[in-house]
Amino acid sequence: MTTASTNPPQPSTSEKTATLYRMVMTEHMCPYGLKSKDLLERRGFKVEDHHLTTREETEAFKAEHNVETTPQTFIAGQRIGGYDDLRIHFEIDKPEAEQSDTSYTPVIAIFAMALLMALAVSYAAFGTIFTLRAFEWFISISMCILAIQKLQDVEKFSTMFLNYDLLAQRWVPYGKIYPFGEALAGVLMTAGALTWLSAPVAIVIGGIGAVSVIKAVYIDKRELKCACVGGDSNVPLGFISLTENVMMLAMGIWMLIRYVG
């Protein structure tokens, strides 16, 4: 470790040497500085690690190099920039102008965890993952996790939901009721309790949701964000949201048939 120099970094004699300036203070250690150092080392660079140990030293460094943030990485005397710039330099990420604002990562994570949880519960209860109940739990647990995403900020969810849900557009409070209904149905279906209540709730909200998505996306051809994973979603409205609603509808009908039968 070395302290920050007031002199601009000179070109390195080795292509695999990088100079890093990052904040390391008693009250604050910059996480992006640590991530930059780790990334450089994983890419085979020897890191000349300069610590900015005071606010005054940090502000002087930023003024000297005309930058607004730290950390800052220099390779072969050329300033690369902060952690995000470093990822772009190594072609891990694309430049912001080329990045898509669409991401399916939250949905993939939710359904993957729901599946694993369902299989785990099935194994704990029956000693095997290959059960019909595991499939039922997968759907009900998915509903619970999706409800959690919405319940984190009901106001944002309901605002996005109003863009396409047919019932919410006619009766605005439904947008705030929906996540509670999904949570209730998911919990009761996971427990296998009060099917007379959970099944109709799932059928109603799933059916209305499916029709709303079909109309907005496949009939009206509108390009909207899906509220299925909350109000900050970057998931496009379409197949994912339709799948969520069809799953609820199908689960509700299935559970009702089993209950009546």
Rank of each mutant, 00 (worst) to 15 (best):
Y178G: 08
Y178F: 13
Y178W: 08
Y178V: 11
Y178R: 00
P179R: 02
P179D: 13
F180E: 04
F180N: 03
F180Y: 15
G181R: 03
G181I: 02
E182N: 01
E182Q: 10
E182D: 04
A183T: 10
A183P: 04
A183K: 02
A183L: 15
A183R: 04
A183N: 09
A183H: 12
L184W: 11
L184N: 07
L184A: 15
L184Y: 07
A185Q: 08
A185S: 13
G186N: 05
G186E: 08
G186F: 10
V187W: 05
V187H: 12
V187F: 14
L188P: 04
L188G: 05
M189R: 12
M189T: 07
M189A: 04
T190D: 08
A191R: 07
A191T: 00
A191D: 08
A191H: 01
A191P: 00
G192S: 07
G192I: 06
A193K: 11
A193C: 06
A193S: 08
L194N: 05
L194K: 00
L194C: 13
T195Y: 07
T195C: 10
T195F: 03
T195R: 01
W196H: 01
W196L: 10
W196T: 00
L197F: 09
L197S: 15
L197Y: 07
L197A: 15
L197W: 03
S198F: 06
S198M: 09
S198R: 05
S198Y: 11
S198D: 09
A199P: 07
A199W: 12
P200F: 12
A202C: 08
A202W: 04
A202D: 12
A202R: 00
I203L: 11
I203D: 05
I203W: 11
V204D: 04
V204Y: 09
V204P: 02
V204K: 00
V204F: 15
I205G: 02
G206A: 14
G206K: 03
G207Y: 04
G207C: 14
G209K: 01
G209F: 14
A210L: 07
A210S: 15
A210D: 06
V211T: 01
S212T: 01
V213Q: 05
V213S: 11
V213P: 00
I214Q: 02
I214M: 13
I214Y: 02
A216K: 01
A216C: 13
A216R: 06
A216E: 12
V217A: 12
V217T: 11
V217G: 10
V217E: 08
Y218C: 14
Y218D: 07
Y218W: 07
